[in-house]
């Protein structure tokens, strides 16, 4: 087993996958706590479907760098959902559901009608479930991922106190002069970036797992925002690493293996939490 791990680690694409996977898991877990507490657990799913729709457009347009379309479209939708969702006639959860299914449907429709590939189901499958995308990253994609992940961690740590305040009591933070709208916008942009990055790791249908499971697992055991955030990050990174290693060694799909590990770890945390009570 160890021999096999050492052998696989010699492959550059395996090393890249592990680096990128760990960074994505770290980023998603940091913002996951905020999203879960703000009752926006499902936003990851909605935005990932938007990203899928944008990717379909980029694919049809035959763009060499499809991030040029995916990233701005996802960010705009994230801003619309997180920032203005509460002031519109269509409220948060309905807006997420609406955008989610509409983007998914249009994405698949576009790929079918205008596709340049004969294997649409293959393209859709690999985009939705991740498949081995994380193991076929180019060097440019790896660098982009590293830069964006570092930026996300930087922003989160830099504005940790403000994000904490806006997360727990938005009205109070407004009353004391915090620019709550600005920080909500920041969270929206950051979560959109994470979603787009995470599509490579687990595919667009499974992204929510990276956002939700670490936060919920941490909340089974810890109670303070800080400890939940720290444990969530450790949990997410560990599960992502374990999932990727199992996937590489056993030949299982990467995305679903990581999520399966997340689910198992959540069960353990729930058990530990129940016993500790």
């Amino acid at each position: 087993m160890l021999d096999k791990i050492f052998l696989y680690m010699q492959y550059p694409f395996v090393r890249y996958a592990l680096i990128v996977g760990v960074l994505i898991a770290l980023c998603s877990s940091l913002l996951g706590v905020t999203l879960v507490l703000k009752r926006f657990s499902f936003i990851g799913d909605g935005l990932s479907h938007v990203a899928f729709g944008a990717m379909a457009i980029a694919t049809v347009l035959n763009l060499s760098n499809n991030m040029l379309i995916i990233m701005p479209v996802t960010i705009i939708c994230a801003v619309l959902l997180l920032r203005t969702g509460q002031n519109t006639k269509i409220k948060g959860d309905a807006a997420i559901a609406m955008i989610s299914v509409a983007a998914l449907a249009f994405g698949y429709l576009i790929m079918n009608v205008f596709s340049t590939s004969a294997n649409v189901s293959g393209d859709v499958c690999s985009t939705l479930f991740g498949s081995t995308s994380i193991l076929t990253l180019s060097k440019v994609e790896v660098y982009l991922c590293i830069i964006l992940s570092v930026a996300v961690v930087f922003i989160f740590v830099l504005f940790y106190n403000r994000i904490f305040a806006v997360t727990f009591d938005e009205n109070f933070s407004r009353a004391v002069g915090t620019n709550a709208d600005g920080y909500n916008l920041l969270v929206a942009v950051v979560i959109a970036i994470i979603i787009v990055l995470a599509m490579n790791l687990v595919g667009s249908l499974l992204i929510s797992a990276l956002v939700i499971f670490p936060a919920l697992s941490a909340m089974r055991i810890f109670k303070s925002f800080k400890s939940v955030t720290v444990f969530s990050a450790v949990f997410s990174v560990t599960c992502a690493l374990l999932g990727m290693m199992i996937s590489i060694l056993m030949g299982t799909p990467v995305g679903s293996t990581i999520v399966a590990v997340d689910v198992a770890a959540f069960a353990i945390c729930a058990l530990v939490g129940a016993v500790a009570k």
Binding site: T132, T136, L249, G251, T252
Partner: peptide, 16 residues
């Protein structure tokens, strides 16, 4: 001798 995930990724790299 590689797992199916590794084989796919390695062949991808070979043709890339």
């Amino acid at each position: 001798v590689l797992s199916s995930t590794m084989v796919y990724s390695e062949v991808y790299n070979i043709v890339s």
